[in-house]
């Protein structure tokens, strides 16, 4: 279970998170929605231990992430996988090398075992024929699928998606959603999906939380969110101008 309470984070004079409270149950998939530049990715990086909050608590399975250091923080990171907004693939490595990289660096598997695992993950995301291509030679959607394969290769228990379908065409977005749904069924992952792809994201999550002005202003099931009368949420869902 992930529990965030009263989380604050500033960059210079700008306070991005102003007391965020959020709970994600084990095995649950939660969508974090909100406007661009409102701090969704910052919250995700705080929860995953990539940046330290100014104050507040982030508890993952009884461990306060903000207080963890060294090996303990490393052990927690080993349980978490992140799919970054633009993939964050190593641009000097091929698709195969990118996906095999975590296995080569973190396990003692033989080259043959690594190859089998990498091929399986890449086949799952439909990229088994693009092993030798470099990130610059593939499309944005393919890059996100490679990033997903690289993230899943170490079997994380918790996975964070930073805008997994933004900028993709509807077919590719549907493919990504299909992969996420199949992951939920097969691996019982706890997942946080940062997105503003409305209503597509509602089909794959258990609950939705909306971040606005540095705080979570509403949480609920996709149906509850769609039925809410909160004017800020309604405006965001319908895309109406003020």
């Amino acid at each position: 279970m992930i529990e965030v309470s009263n989380l604050y984070k500033s960059f210079g004079n700008q306070t991005v998170l102003k007391g965020v409270d959020l709970k994600i149950e084990a095995g649950e998939t939660l969508a974090l929605i909100g406007g661009s530049g409102k701090g969704k990715s910052v919250l995700l990086k705080n929860i995953s231990g990539l940046i330290k909050p100014d104050s507040g608590k982030i508890v993952i399975d009884q461990q306060d992430v903000s207080q963890l250091k060294g090996k303990k923080l490393g052990n927690l990171k080993d349980r978490i996988g992140i799919v970054f907004q633009f993939g964050a693939l190593f641009d000097s490595l091929t698709v195969y090398e990118n996906v095999s990289f975590p296995l080569k660096e973190k396990t003692k598997l033989s080259d043959k075992e690594i190859r089998q695992k990498v091929l399986k993950e890449l086949t799952d995301v439909g990229l088994e024929n693009d092993l030798e291509k470099y990130p610059a030679q593939i499309s944005g959607g393919m890059r996100k699928r490679v990033a997903l394969a690289r993230c899943l290769i170490l079997n994380p228990e918790i996975i964070f998606f930073d805008e997994p379908t933004t900028g993709l065409d509807p077919v590719i977005a549907a493919t990504i959603y299909k992969i996420i749904r199949s992951l939920q069924k097969r691996r019982k992952l706890t997942a946080l999906i940062v997105s503003h792809e409305i209503p597509g994201i509602f089909k794959v999550v258990d609950r939705v939380a909306m971040l606005h002005d540095g705080k979570i202003i509403v949480t609920g099931t996709p149906e509850e969110i769609q039925a809410t009368k909160n004017p800020i949420v309604r405006q965001f869902l319908t895309g109406e101008l003020e």
């Binding site: 990539l50 990171k77 978490i80 907004q85």
Partner: peptide
Amino acid sequence: GIMRMSEQIDALDAMNL
């Protein structure tokens, strides 16, 4: 610098490398 800008350094950190 390009690795920093394109979150490749964050990706390494996220993998606990």
